[in-house]
Write a protein that binds this DNA or RNA. Structure first.
Lengths: 217, 217
DNA sequence: TATAGCAATATTGTATACATTTATGATAAT
DNA sequence: ATTATCATAAATGTATACAATATTGCTATA
């Protein structure tokens, strides 16, 4: 993505994520041009990219609209992710390098250190390190198809929304899962790793569903 | 997609599929404008869409290149597809309507009629009907996430390449799988349906790998 | 001869004007 | 009052001119 396109992409996405453009909003190119300070061409490019990333949907000759996710959609996403990430760690158990294992341990320690501090847990730290953790595994799985597919279904807003609801205890449990996965990988036990990962993702799904079940988007 | 964009998309994709633009080819916007008879804007839109459909890859300030699939990539795609389509039929076994079952039976019959004719099997008929068959299942699975994900990993060129190599006997076997799936769905036996589907896709993978294992793209 | 630097060229990125389509709202007929 | 029709406006679709960037190939120098 080029500079202007990236600028527009970032601004529009931020506004979708922070609620400035609620689901269903008609995003008009003219307004976005003003808001982003670039011309229509990069705005259109950004909208196309946002469409492939599922932030918006496009209707021919009518424009683009902020995507509407239902609770069922989100349940499906978690379910699919649990399956795909299980395969990821199964494969990672075969291919992962000792360097990457060390990196995983470092991430686990960072999150643990954060959790051991007093005061409210720093969710931002968790989000960044957690993403890095999963990214190392995906890269170790050595499958472009898996990596691309996961990248497309793992919606950042969902992860963030879920994590922000976590209590310290739940974050601790999540980090415990990470440690289990590290142990499974060191034992080169793909089935174990896959099982833990499935638990790990399903926990997140249950948390999400419990939090939002009575709201319906 | 608008008219001009669609025209460009179709022309460029055809040229990729029929070998006119081999993998790795640098697709220059100027040439495509001439070839497609539309201006750069719809050409660029078409290229963006081809990128999301994985026909091409984009490098910033360098342009787009026809995507290069390795045999390992393709093995991964089949593997992932076998998993996802298994889930599809598991869910379809719960939700599918009697109308859709009837449609599946009609498709099975069409392919069977084609296979019972003398002369070389009409692969085009198989491709169209086979796609329709899987599409009905995906729609019956009632999961936008699954549908979107499968749409993105099921590369038409791969299916076509594989099917064209099929002997009449192998096409017959494929259609037999379809019948098994129909029976499993009527019995509302999701596990059975999933198992058949896995066999169905893995057969295609094995066929592909056996055909191309010594060529390497 | 090999390589570094630079100029020329080609290609992509961006802005904007124009065309087409769709949405809006006023007016008139039932 | 309601609906159909049409004019107007506003949005998207398309084309093209201009800007920034990357590639290419030449020349000068070691």
């Amino acid at each position: 993505m080029s500079k202007a396109t990236e600028k527009a992409y970032t601004i529009i996405r931020e506004n979708i994520l922070n609620g400035g453009y609620p689901p269903g909003t008609h995003l008009k190119e003219g307004e976005l041009v003003e808001k982003c300070g670039v011309s229509r061409t990069p705005v259109r490019d950004a909208l196309r990219q946002l469409a492939t990333d599922r932030y918006v949907v496009t209707h021919r000759n009518q424009g683009v609209f902020v995507n509407q996710w239902t609770v069922d959609d989100i349940k499906d996403i978690f379910e699919l992710r649990s399956i795909l990430e299980s395969i990821v760690v199964e494969r990672a158990a075969i291919h992962i390098s000792s360097d990457d294992v060390a990196n995983l341990k470092a991430i686990h320690l960072k999150i643990q250190t954060m959790l051991d501090q007093n005061g409210p847990p720093k969710v931002e730290v968790f989000l960044v390190e957690n993403k890095a953790f999963h990214q190392i595994l995906i890269s170790a799985a050595n499958s472009r198809t898996l990596a691309d597919t996961l990248a497309q279904i793992v919606q950042p807003p969902l992860i963030a929304q879920t994590a922000r609801q976590y209590t310290r205890q739940e974050l601790q449990r999540s980090n415990d899962h990470h440690l289990d996965i590290i142990n499974a990988l060191e034992a080169k036990d793909g089935a174990w790793a896959a099982s833990v990962m499935k638990t790990h993702i399903i926990s997140a799904q249950r948390k999400f569903v419990n939090t939002y079940k009575d709201e319906e988007t």
